[in-house]
């Protein structure tokens, strides 16, 4: 197994671990944690302030 395959396997283990957490905890609990993660990503993106032209460039059209 090469390094990439090992990394993929480890990532999948984490995904499964988090999914089990979601499955075994009330919606209010996991969604509070998820909200912190996603909102912080969006707040970072807001700081970038890309123009519409830059977004089109990124998207390739």
């Amino acid at each position: 197994m090469n390094e990439r395959e090992i990394n993929s396997r480890e990532r999948m283990k984490y995904v499964e671990k988090w999914a089990e957490f979601v499955k075994n905890n009330p919606d209010e609990v996991w969604s509070k944690m998820q909200k912190e993660l996603i909102d912080s990503q969006i707040e970072n993106a807001e700081r970038v302030k890309l123009t519409k032209e830059q977004v089109r460039y990124i998207k390739g059209r």
Partner: peptide, 17 residues
């Protein structure tokens, strides 16, 4: 809290991101 679709519907209550 496993999610389950019953008769084409599902209900949840979450902190919205």
């Amino acid at each position: 809290v496993e999610f389950e679709v019953v008769n084409g519907e599902l209900r949840t209550k979450k902190n919205l991101t």
